[in-house]
Design a binder for these strands. Structure first.
Length: 369
DNA sequence: TAAGCGTGGGC
DNA sequence: TGCCCAAGCTT
């Protein structure tokens, strides 16, 4: 089918498609913690966590998050350090800062009630077209499309749509299709069923067509095209960044940590002091000691080499050389503050949110003792 | 529009 | 090992 028309929709009977899809969902859906009720706050939290993140990964994070912040009000009141700690290890940390800001807006502008219109909910930070549709349909029963990667994959096969799903402009094609197909009696189950089908049956690679409840509606299956769809252009190569990091201790056994900048990669998370070197040649400890002294006016002695870590992000790789070191001299308070540096004890470390890359460094340190 | 933004699992 | 992926949003 052409990317710019929906003629394939004429070949499908929406009523029986809905019935086949929703009936399957009623019996086969997974038992997930965010499906226990329709609290808009919990639906919202789960949808943000599920962005680009697997269900199995999200489950324990969601359960702990709701224990820590049972209501929208509890989360709105939380300190930033605490919300980052709740998200520690989940990735895409701007999600939780946007969610926090948006929840505070809901409290101040909407009396604590999550808005139930597309215009209002779409204004909230971190709520894009997918999340808006998901909350409106799941929490409020509104017949709005919630088009994620699953829905694009499933519908590209059902309707043999060959638009490149990696292109942002393709999403509106699938939204138009959902608007034609969605059940107005049960938009919640319809949207969730499309995603559940994509996750369990209509998977990337080899879809399990023989188990598919909507096989009789699937134009790709009929034409043997299920392995050719969806069309998805794939991506670019990554940048490598050389890092030298150090776990630095003072005479009383405290650790020096640093808060990352409030924008960009791993914003506002904590880390062990480190420097980036883009040169090809492997950076050495002397380079770190020099740069550290330049910033703090204090000398540090990097002792043993703890570990070498290759940490892969979505768009770059850190090649980290991690050392352990000692600092014998006091660092001025103003110097600490202006560089977002802080001395903390081992017990206090657990109160701060660290990215996984730096957790790996810490793990290497604990093994060395 | 394209790039930036994490992590863990599958093959 | 290296790539692709998984319930996207922001700038």
């Amino acid at each position: 089918m052409k990317a710019d028309n929906l003629k394939a929709l004429e070949l499908i009977d929406a009523a029986t498609f809905q019935k086949d899809l929703i009936s399957w969902f009623e019996t086969e859906q997974r038992d997930l913690p965010w499906r226990k009720d329709q609290d808009p706050y919990k639906v919202w939290v789960s949808e943000i966590m599920l962005q680009q993140t697997r269900v199995e990964t999200v489950i324990p994070f969601f359960n702990r998050f709701i224990e820590w912040f049972p209501t929208l009000e509890d989360f709105a009141d939380a300190e930033e350090e605490r919300i980052l700690k709740a998200w520690e290890g989940l990735g895409y940390y701007s999600r939780v800062r946007n969610l926090h800001s948006a929840v505070q807006e809901v409290r101040s502008e909407y009396g604590g009630q999550v808005p139930d219109t597309p215009a209002e909910i779409s204004k909230l930070k971190g709520v894009g077209p997918y999340t808006a549709g998901a909350i409106l349909s799941i929490a409020y029963g509104k017949p709005e499309p919630a088009v994620d990667g699953n829905v694009m994959r499933v519908l590209s096969r059902i309707l043999t749509i060959d638009a490149d799903i990696a292109k942002p402009s393709s999403r509106k094609i699938f939204e138009a299709a959902v608007r034609e197909l969605i059940s107005h009696e049960n938009p919640s189950s319809f949207n969730q069923a499309l995603m559940e089908l994509g996750a369990l049956i209509c998977v990337p690679g080899k879809p399990a067509c023989l188990l598919c409840p909507v096989r009789r509606h699937c134009q790709a299956f009929e034409e043997g095209l299920q392995n050719e769809l969806p069309v998805k252009s794939s991506n670019k190569k990554m940048r490598n960044v050389q890092i030298v990091a150090a776990i630095l201790t003072d005479h009383s056994g405290r650790f020096l940590i640093r808060k990352r900048p409030n924008k960009g990669l791993l914003a506002n998370l904590w880390e062990f002091p480190n420097f980036e070197y883009n040169s090809q040649l492997a950076p050495k400890r002397e380079r770190f000691e020099h740069d550290f002294q330049e910033i703090t006016a204090v000398h540090c002695d990097l002792g043993i080499h703890l570990t070498k870590i290759d940490h892969v992000f979505s768009h770059l790789t850190w090649n980290v050389d991690a050392y352990a070191g000692l600092i014998q001299t006091d660092i001025e308070d103003e110097v600490l503050a202006s560089n977002r540096l802080k001395w903390v004890s081992a017990e206090e470390l657990s109160e701060y949110a660290f990215p996984v890359s730096h957790q790996k460094i810490w793990k290497a340190w604990t093994k060395q003792g």
